[in-house]
Simulated scan of single mutants.
Amino acid sequence: MNKIALGLGVAAMLVTGLAQAVQTESRTAKIASCESAKPAQMVSMIKNDFLQNRLPRWADDKKLLGTSTPVVWVQDDQIVQNGDSWQIPLKVRGTKVDRTYTVKVDCKAGDLEYSLPE
């Protein structure tokens, strides 16, 4: 095998591995319609989704936080609602650090997106 073919093979493997890593660390999800949700319902949905669906898949976040069972909360005065869209800062306390995830929810489209931990 020549050096160019070997180099292309290695590059393809790296791209494939990166794509798989990005898929397992996806920060977006589809959710059921939440157009008539109240703030308390949105907070409950976000907290449950984070703890049950997202964090178990996010190895880097678990390592950063130092736990797979952090304490999570939302300060009600920081929730922003604009029609069917919400922006909710999710506070997360691990054994190593505290971080905030900005969660954007589009109830009409059924989209949920988490920022990287800040």
Rank of each mutant, 00 (worst) to 15 (best):
I31T: 05
A109G: 00
Q81W: 11
G83I: 13
W58M: 13
Y101I: 02
R27I: 09
V43I: 12
G83T: 09
Q52K: 15
D84F: 11
F50I: 03
V97G: 03
Q78G: 08
V71Q: 13
V80A: 12
A59C: 00
P39N: 05
P56C: 08
Q52I: 15
K38L: 11
S26T: 14
A32K: 09
R93M: 05
D60P: 00
E113P: 00
T95W: 04
V97S: 08
Q81T: 04
A109N: 10
P56R: 14
Q87M: 14
Q78L: 10
V80K: 13
A29C: 01
T67D: 01
K30Q: 08
M42K: 08
V80E: 14
K96Y: 01
K38E: 13
A32S: 09
V92N: 00
A37R: 03
D61A: 13
S33Y: 01
W73L: 08
D106K: 04
P89T: 01
Q81K: 15
V71Y: 10
V103L: 02
R57I: 04
I88P: 00
Q78A: 14
R57F: 05
G110R: 01
E35A: 13
Y101H: 14
K96C: 01
V74C: 09
P89F: 06
M45N: 04
C34V: 09
Q52P: 07
Q41I: 05
D106A: 09
W58V: 03
A32N: 12
T102A: 01
E35Y: 01
L112G: 05
D61T: 06
E35L: 03
V92S: 03
V103C: 07
S36V: 08
D61C: 06
E113S: 11
W58S: 07
N48P: 00
G94S: 03
N53D: 04
V71C: 05
K47W: 02
L64S: 11
N82I: 10
D49C: 06
I31S: 04
V105R: 01
D61Q: 02
W86E: 09
Q52N: 15
S44G: 06
K47Y: 02
D106L: 14
R99D: 00
V71G: 07
K62A: 07
D60Y: 13
Q78I: 01
E35F: 00
F50M: 05
K91T: 07
W73F: 14
S85K: 15
D84S: 07
C107I: 06
L65V: 01
V80R: 14
V71M: 10
I46W: 07
V80I: 14
R57G: 10
S33H: 07
Q75H: 02
D60V: 06
K63A: 12
L64N: 08
T102E: 14
V74F: 09
W73D: 15
M45S: 12
Y101V: 02
V43Y: 06
V71F: 12
N82G: 12
V103N: 03
D61V: 13
V74E: 05
W86P: 04
M45L: 13
K96W: 02
Q87N: 14
V92G: 03
D106Y: 10
A109Y: 02
K96D: 11
D60S: 10
T95Y: 05
K104T: 09
K30H: 08
L51V: 09
G94R: 02
Q78W: 00
G83E: 14
D84L: 02
V80S: 11
F50C: 04
K108H: 06
N82Y: 07
S36H: 07
Q75I: 08
